[in-house]
Structures are given as C-alpha cells and as structure tokens.
Design a protein around this nucleic acid. Structure first.
Length: 794
DNA sequence: GCGTTCAATGTACCT
DNA sequence: ACAGGTACATTGAACGCG
C-alpha cells in the first residue's frame, strides 16, 4: 500500500546487526505513523589516486576480505570540481564505517576516504531526497511484529519514500512546558533541589500544572507530568532553555527518585545529541532559546523579554518573580499562588513565542534538510553546510573532510569616514545581497577556483581586483547554482506574498520561508571564509570582498561624477544627497557596468553623523528615528543613558533645537540625582565571554558574577550579568553589585550622571559644540535658559 | 609615591 | 563553531617627576 506522510523526526536503530531507518510522521488522515526502512546501507567513498587503476584497487580491497563490506562499486564523482574515480564502499552496518575507512586510507592506490563522517540518518535523507517537514509517499506494508512505538500504525518500507510537492503543514499537537525548582542555596542542582512546579499548555488551549507536595516531594510532579505527556502524545514539545538545562535536570531528578522520564514514543529517555540538542524519539523537541538570536533587538534574551518583544505578554503586565526568590515564594502560602501564576505565565510565553517561531523553524528545517529538532541547535555555519551538502550531492560533488585550517585574516568591506554633522534629504543606496550576487556574477566558488600555478587563458576566467584570485567563467560553480536558486526563490515568494492577505496562514508560511532562505543566503559568504568549514577556501571569501570593495569604490566615483555628494558609505551602501534623477541614472549605469542591482533603500529627512564610523541617527519621512550603532542600540549601556540619548536625538532632529536638548538633559540629570528614575534603568548588562578565572584584567561584570557565585548562583559562559554601580572607593570594578543584591540607596548616581547619561548625550550634542561641562552645569532654570539663549545666539 | 599616558583588554555593534 | 571593520570604556603598566 502507499502511505503518505509528513516527516517529523528520524532516527536509526540496529536490529540483529542490521541498520534500520525509522521515519516518524503524520499521515493524511492525521494518524501518527512510523515507517521502518531496512533497505538502506551505510557507505563511504575511497578516492582513487589519479594514476591508479580503479579495478586494481577494488581487487586489492577484496583481497583483504573485510567481513563488514557489503559491496564495492567504481563510480565517477567530483572533488572541488575535478572529476575523480572513487570506489563506493557499502557496509553491512554503521559501526564498521569509520574503522573500514581508516583501514582503506592506508591501501595503495587510495588517495583518501571521504564521507565516512556523514551521519547515517543524514546519509539516508540526502541520498533519497527526503526532506524534514515535507510530505512523502512510500510503498509500505503494515508491520506484524511491530517494535514498541506509540503510534497509530507501523509500516515496513518496500522502497525509499518519494518527495511530494504539497507544502501544507498538518495539524500538529504541540505541548509547551516550563519548570520551577526549589533552591535556597543558589542555582538549583538536581542532586538536592526538587522541581516544585511544572506548568504545561497546548496549542488547543489545555493548561495544566503539576505541584510538589508540602514536603516538596517531586516524585508526584515527575510521574504525573510523564503520564500526561504520554497521554497527550504531542508531536512537538517546546520550552525555553530545555536543551541546555531542563531536560537534563528532569532526567536527573527522575533517576534519583527511581523514575524514568519516558516522554518519547519508544520508551527511551531524552538524550543529548548532535549540536547539543536533546532528542525525544518520535517527537520534535524544540528549544526556543536556540532561535532567540533571530531577534538581535532583544539584548537580554530571556523568555520574558522575548515574549515582551513579540507582543506575547508585556512585561509591565506581568508579575515577575526572580529566581533567587523562588524558594521564599514557595514557602509562603500566599506568595505561592503568585509563583504558580508566574510559572503558568512562563508556559503561556513559551506557547506564544513558539507560535512566532515554529513556522520559521519548519521552513528552515525543510530548506536545509536537518530534522526539525536539530535545526535550531545547529550553528549558522552548520546550517549552510548541510544545505550545501544536500545540494551538491545532486551534482556528484564529494563532501570534503573537516580539517583544522590555519586562520589567515583578509581584507573586508570599505567604510567611509562620515561627513559629521547634520545633513538634510539624504538618500541611502545599497546593493541588494551584495556578496551572494558577487559570487554569482563572478562565479566565485570552491569548484571554479583556478590555483595560481594552473595555466588558463585570461578570457576563461574572472580575476578579482587587488587579490588576483581567478575563477572559471564556465561551468557554473555550486555557489552560483545554489545562491541563484535562493535569490530567485526569495523574489518569487515575496512577489507571491503581495497578492495574499497578511493574516492568512499561507502568508505566514511564505514569510517564514523567505526568512529561512534569507538566513542561508546571507550566511554563505561568511561560511566560505570560516576556517571550520568543510569547503573553507580563503580565496573565495577574499575574492568576494575584493570585488565588493572595487564596486563600492567605483560606485562612489560614478556618483560624484554625476554630481552626487557622498557623505557616508559602509561595505555595500552609499549615503548621498537625494537627487532622484541623478540616482536613477547612477543605478542604470551600475546595472550595465557590473550586472548588479543598486537600489534606493531609504531617504532621511535629516540625518546626524558623529565623527565616528558606524554611528548615526536619522529622521525618516514617517517621523520615526533610525538609530545606528549609538548607545541607544547597545545592550551594555544603562537604560538611563539610552533613553536620554534617544530623546536628545529626537529633539535635535525633529525640533532642531540643541538648546532644548541641553535643557532636557539638565532636567533629566536632576531627576536622576533625586533617584526619580526606575531602579531597573540603572542596570548594566554584559556578557560573560569566558570563565571568570580566565580574564586578564579585572572587569565589573566579572566581579559581579563572582559575587553571585559566592552565594551559589553560578553563571555559564555566554550568560549576561546585570549589575549596578554603588558608592564606594577604588576602581569601578570594586564598586559594582549584582542588581538583585543592591538597594537603590547605595547606588552611585554620580556614576550614572558622569559616565552614562552625559557621555551618551554629549555624543550627539558635540555636533553642536555643546561640551560635557555644559550638560553638568545645574544652575537655576531661568538663569540657565538665559545663558543658553545667549550662547546659541552667539 | 602619585598623576598622566597609552597600549591592551573586553564588549558589542555594522554591513 | 559564518566574515572583517569599528567604537568605546576601563584597566594597568610604563613613564615622568627631585
């Protein structure tokens, strides 16, 4: 019979020494199915030396009588674009692959073995063109002696599945959860601290909570939670921080209590796997924190901040309970109610954030080919790499081994020094997807690169300026193929979206798709220059950036020849006077000369450049401010400074009154000195980028982290530390405290005046010759106004 | 011994 | 564990000074 299913998860098993692929999915009728494919064997390639005879090599291998070899085939492949003869070594089991490849590498006539490092499940998906989060059909028969799996039907495959066109997403059961641990000794530890609350919610509005008893016994929490999950049988489980923390915590708790955390579909426990994701067999376990980086505007990426940003649940409308207070809240009968509600709200946030992210995650999984539960956990470089592996496989290109490469820096984009001060009516022109388009236009790719010593006629190659790297004009390299596809597909999607109502399901899915496509296209240049990449090739990245410099510099020349004054530019953009006719002419010239598209991105009514590069603020026609690089945009400045600077910019750009801005700052400082600003606006957040001991110099956030650790609150590398500056003597790092350990009365407000608000405000006002001292003068208002009036009137 | 100078360190941003 | 280019605050050693 033919089974049609949407692929949710995949894993491999070994039964009686034979490898099996298990495909978990949902069929057209909404039944949960497991398809077991026993017809696929692992393999790798032995690359034959150029002068060797492939048949001789096969004979040589055969003579060794390796028992784990199933068969040998001589086939044609390509390696970095060059045709090679390889022996496809098919193995009887997955365990044998590594060992066998190691042995064959030593054989005469074998140059190297490749693709022995491709995981079996990914091998199966790629070879059979099977795509996670897509529909497939397969010839299969219902299993008689079924393995124990929590699905409606189990099938045995009779042939590999076939990918279908259908892009619809089936109705899935989604479960979200969050936990509260009880600890009076700092960071909760599973060997001593119980889980007192688990809150769950589903995408069909079912909310549940599981609580520990009065003695804080959590066996009941874990047992009832596990039973609930099994009964509900979700396809997707979502949480925040579940990969790095919660699954392991719950599992450890279960172990101590003699329980099993059987929340999957086969009675195994959640286990950490590739890229640090936690696998729950038969379901897709998704950690939303893995997707938080898609929202760089959110500087401190906690669940509540993300939910606030995505309009899931506003922070002002919530009662937040800090971790350090969990135990106190649990112990107090009245407060326990608040803690329970806080926990339930966390799970509601999980569900809301999941709704904003899941479409994107599915599209990314679908595009890249990594299973849904892997895709978030995989770093950007690995996403690009799997996308490339999947797409190069089709053209017979072999996947290089990952080898450690020395890091050799190279030149990047051009950044112009801005014409500091205020400019009116400024147009921003930029090259759309500059690096991908350069790689397409000049066929820059690992498989088209012509090494220095290789003779080739100049007419056959594109030669990058300055660096002189050469790439064949023909045939198209795989970057060109793949990037053209991505750019075309994105354009098609975006034009399709124009004809669809924005609230429709279809629009949302298309939007998620175009975002996924954009992520991969944008990361491909960086991938080429990443020393960890399998296809790392410095000349590829270096040629792209060299072409980029060449083109932006020619563009500036041409603009100026046109009579357009360029006031700033960075990598792929130029800022110039907004003269539509001249701009149109310029765009046309660029298109003809370089076969690249430059477009009018936006126009600023008024823009202010500081003396520095990469820092400016502009007023858009709709009245919004566009602020770039300045303190307002930074997560490591106190909110007081950011708010003051933003208001100063607004006054200066909209009302064009530096005087009024000065008065605002002076008033703001008075309020700050009276401690009338919220305490939370004084918190400074900085990332711990390495273990506290490894810092070469003393640093405020590290000292704050050490204070937290002394009280049992451990921070991991990558965590953000929130601290405030308090009164006292000595270095700055000696005068900081974690924000939850300090009280407002001990805060050193003068620090915030002189080192936060004043510098941030002065950054803008220095364009108007306002000095920091002026901002710090606090005379009576009338007197001040007069003095300023006199000052600005000269 | 103490203030000044400046390279080094550290973080976060822009494209 | 995608690239290079850049700004900026703070630290701490070197320096100058009877």
């Amino acid at each position: 019979m033919v089974v049609t299913f949407w692929l949710l998860d995949v894993n491999s098993e070994v039964k009686a020494d034979k490898p099996e692929i298990w495909l978990w999915g949902i069929d057209k009728a909404g039944k949960r199915v497991l398809v077991v494919d026993r017809g696929f064997l692992p393999y790798f390639y032995a690359v034959i030396e150029e002068k060797a005879d492939p048949e001789k090599v096969v004979e040589e291998i055969e003579s060794k009588q390796f028992s784990s070899i199933s068969r040998l085939d001589v086939v044609d492949r390509r390696f970095f674009g060059k045709p090679v003869k390889v022996v496809k070594v098919v193995c009887k089991c997955t365990d044998a692959v590594k060992e066998l490849a190691e042995a064959l590498r030593e054989l005469e006539g074998v140059r190297d073995c490749l693709e022995d490092d491709i995981r079996f499940t990914m091998r199966y998906l790629i070879d059979n063109n099977i795509v996670p989060c897509s529909w497939h059909e397969i010839e299969a028969i219902e299993e008689i002696n079924s393995p124990d799996a929590q699905v409606d039907t189990i099938y045995a495959a009779k042939s590999p599945p076939k990918l279908l066109e259908d892009t619809a997403v089936p109705k899935l059961r989604i479960l979200g959860f969050s936990t509260i641990y009880y600890s009076k000794e700092g960071s909760p530890k599973p060997d001593r601290n119980p889980v007192v609350i688990v809150s769950t919610a589903t995408n069909f509005s079912e909310e549940k909570q599981f609580f520990a008893d009065e003695e804080k016994n959590d066996g009941i929490v874990l047992e009832t939670f596990v039973n609930y999950v099994r009964k509900l049988d979700p396809d997707i489980i979502v949480g925040y921080g579940v990969n790095s923390q919660h699954w392991l915590y719950l599992r450890e708790r279960c172990k101590r209590l003699g329980l099993r955390l059987y929340v999957d579909r086969t009675k195994t426990e959640p286990h950490t796997s590739v890229y640090g994701h936690v696998s729950v067999t038969g379901r897709a376990n998704i950690d939303l924190s893995d997707f938080a980086s898609e929202f760089p505007e959110v500087k401190v990426q906690t669940l509540e901040n993300l939910a606030d940003y995505l309009d899931v649940m506003k922070i002002e409308k919530r009662r937040i309970v800090e971790d350090i207070d969990f135990a106190d809240y649990w112990d107090d009968k009245e407060k326990r109610r608040v803690l329970k509600e806080f926990s339930m709200d966390n799970t509601r946030c999980v569900m809301g954030v999941a709704e904003a992210i899941l479409d994107f995650a599915m599209q990314l999984s679908n595009l890249v080919g990594l299973p849904l539960d892997h895709i978030g956990a995989a770093a950007a470089g690995f996403k690009v790499e799997w996308f490339l592996i999947k797409n190069t496989h089709k053209s017979g290109e072999l996947v290089p081994k990952r080898i450690e490469q020395p890091y050799i820096p190279y030149l990047g984009g051009v950044v112009l020094k801005p014409e500091s001060g205020v400019h009116e009516n400024v147009a921003v022109l930029d090259f759309k997807s500059m690096y991908p388009n350069l790689m397409i236009a000049y066929n820059i790719s690992p498989d088209t690169y012509v090494p220095l010593k290789e003779p080739v006629s100049p007419s056959q190659v594109y030669e990058a300026p300055e660096v002189k790297h050469r790439f064949l004009k023909e045939p198209a390299g795989f970057y060109k193929a793949v990037l053209s596809y991505l750019i075309n597909v994105r354009n098609e999607i975006r034009s399709k979206m124009k004809d669809i109502p924005q609230r429709s399901v279809e629009y949302r899915v298309l939007d998620a798709r175009q975002k996924a496509v954009k992520v991969i296209a944008n990361a491909s240049y960086g991938y080429a220059g990443w020393t960890g990449a399998r296809w790392y090739m410095k000349p590829v990245a270096e040629a792209a950036s060299a072409w980029g410099r060449h083109i932006i510099l020619r563009t500036i020349e041409m603009a100026e020849n046109e009579g357009l004054k360029v006031v700033y530019g960075d990598t792929d953009s130029i800022f110039a006077e907004n003269e539509p006719e001249k701009i149109r002419k310029l765009s046309k010239e660029i298109a003809e000369l370089f076969r690249l598209e430059i477009s009018l991105d936006k126009v600023y009514v008024r823009i202010l450049f500081t003396e520095a590069k990469k820092r400016y603020g502009g007023l858009l026609p709709d009245g919004r401010l566009d602020i770039v690089g300045l303190e307002v945009m930074r997560g490591d400045w106190a909110a007081v400074a950011k708010k003051a600077q933003e208001r100063v910019l607004e006054i200066v750009l909209k009302e064009q009154s530096p005087q009024k801005a000065v008065e605002f700052v002076q008033q703001f400082i008075r309020e700050l000195r009276r401690r009338q600003v919220p305490y939370r606006d004084l918190i400074i957040w900085k990332t711990l980028t390495k273990p506290a001991e490894e810092y070469a110099v003393k640093a405020s956030h590290v000292e704050a982290a050490k204070m937290l650790r002394k009280k049992g609150w451990e921070l991991a590398v990558g965590d953000k530390v929130g601290y405030v500056v308090v009164v006292g003597a000595g270095h700055l790092y000696e005068r900081v405290k974690p924000y939850m350990f300090a009280s407002y009365s001990e805060v050193d407000v003068e620090y915030y005046v002189t080192k936060q608000v004043v510098p941030a405000a002065a950054r803008i006002l220095e364009s108007f010759n306002v000095k920091e001292e002026t901002l710090l003068e606090s005379k009576r208002i009338e007197k001040e106004n007069k003095r300023l009036t006199d000052y600005f009137n000269g």
